[in-house]
Design a protein around this nucleic acid. Structure first.
Length: 414
RNA sequence: GCUAGGGUAGGGUAGCGGUUAUCCUAAAGGACUGUGGAUCCUUUGACUCGGGUUCAAAUCCCGGCCCUGGCCCCA
């Protein structure tokens, strides 16, 4: 007997139905915001992936040599592919682009709660707009998706990297991305270790910086202006976003949280991370602005903002909140035969199918009892009995399986 | 890569040194003159794998595999 590979999932009919429902809600929401769907290959050259994440990524992904000796990999994320797509057709695409996709990704990791080796990830991005309105649009579609999925106990923690970057510029930081990584980990590591790491980075005034991070909120942030250009720019951006979110009616789902920096090197402006309100689970998803990335993939300079939302944590959260779709598969009609009536059964089945109904009939030469059992099993809404007795008067019997009621109908009426 | 706890029919379980490995459920088939979605009967089907201890291993020990968490990492 063969087993599934570690960290992968089979989707049996009910599970597939649930997934289809989930994706349908997500797609419809994204489309209502004017995003259009794209998809790209599951395999890409290793160089493309390494361009963004570095050669070391090899240990964490599925990479291998193909028969032509090329090093290729199963895509572990979407950003390189979509950046490539944009760079490839730079000239003909009308900006701003609003694209979404729900590709499958593969990562060679140890599976644990909310994390598998194969998963789906919604990617929503706007390319070609620097405006805070694009930041807000991305946040809003994210909030709408959560709400349309039936979730409400979530909070978008919004920040802007340039604020912290501006603060750090004032001290002599050796490696700014290392500093981002450390501050991103603040809640996870012991205080002493945290401070020591900051000192190692050359941040001597760490207490001042932490003080600022802790005391800033959306009401008083304006008071921090005037320190340097970068900080001012980030404050304007955050205030713009906050204002737009208020106008749009989504302010209640957001909070300013400057401790959110995200570990990744490529983010340039607004960044956000979504948590359940009680912060019991790992981060649900996150994203931000990455204005330099497309250019680094060989395209023209193209500002971009977006997010990635994995399906695994989402499913956990939805199950916890009791809003996971429990979809049952069903058919509209099961046509049961009693006696030698194939001719009638098949013509009835054909007519009903042409009308758009989901229809099945006996494929296993079963007796009536077992046919009914099967009809029940596959969740048939109605059973049509085609029996020799009724056929003599040109009739068939339709039974509603939910109410148990049944009636004789002229065969021509189908 | 490190680490904790698990693995008994398709699903859920009992057994925890000697049983014909328990029960529920499921599936397949049959009976019942064509409402039988019921009932009754029959059948199918399991100790994760390998090694060790023992007269005897599902049961104890070691290792692999897999599952569920945690760490690392998190795009």
């Amino acid at each position: 007997m063969f087993q599934r590979l570690r960290g992968t999932r089979d989707f049996y009919p009910e599970e597939m139905a649930a997934r289809n429902k989930l994706f349908k809600i997500i797609k419809e929401t994204a489309e209502r915001y004017g995003f259009v769907e794209i998809v790209s290959p599951a395999i890409e050259s290793f160089d493309l992936i390494a361009k963004k994440s570095g050669e070391d990524i090899r240990d964490e992904i599925y990479a291998f040599e193909d028969k032509g000796g090329r090093t290729i990999c199963l895509i572990p994320e979407f950003t390189p592919s979509v950046s490539r797509m944009i760079a490839n057709r730079q000239k003909e695409l009308g900006k701003p682009l609003k694209w979404f996709s729900i590709p499958r990704h593969w990562r060679y990791e140890r599976p644990q709660s909310g994390r598998l080796r194969e998963f789906y990830q919604l990617n929503v991005d706007i390319f070609g707009s620097k405006s805070p309105k694009a930041d807000t649009e991305v946040l809003s579609v994210g909030i709408s998706i959560m709400l349309n999925l039936g979730l409400k106990d979530f909070l978008f923690h919004i920040s802007n990297r340039e604020f912290l970057q501006g603060l750090l510029q004032e001290s002599n930081v050796s490696d700014i991305h290392e500093a981002f990584r450390i501050i991103d980990k603040r809640e996870k590591i012991p205080e002493e270790e945290f401070i020591e790491s900051l000192l190692n980075c050359g941040i001597k005034n760490y207490d001042e910086i932490l003080d600022v991070l802790d005391s800033v909120n959306i009401e008083n942030i304006e008071n921090f202006k005037g320190r340097n250009k970068m900080i001012d720019r980030s404050i304007d951006n955050l205030l713009d976003i906050s204002k737009s979110l208020d106008y749009y009616g989504f302010k209640e789902y957001c909070t300013l949280d400057l401790s959110v920096v995200r570990g990744l090197a490529y983010y340039t402006g607004m960044v956000f991370e979504v948590y359940d309100k009680k912060k019991e689970m790992r981060s649900l998803f996150g994203g931000g602005r990455y204005d330099d990335l497309v250019e680094s993939f060989g395209g023209e300079p193209t500002p971009a903002v977006g997010f990635g939302m994995g399906d695994v944590v989402l499913e956990l959260m939805m199950k916890k909140e009791g809003v996971w779709p429990e979809e049952k598969t069903y058919i509209d009609y099961y046509v049961a035969d009693i006696g030698d009536v194939d001719k009638y059964v098949l013509s009835i089945v054909r007519k009903l199918r042409d009308k758009g109904y989901r229809v099945s009939f006996d494929l296993a030469d079963r007796n009536l009892s077992n046919q009914l059992k099967y009809a029940d099993r596959i969740n048939a809404k109605n059973v049509i009995f085609v029996g020799e007795k009724e056929l003599k008067e040109g009739k068939i019997v339709i039974k509603n399986m939910e109410t148990g009621e049944q009636e004789k109908v002229e065969i021509g009426k189908i």
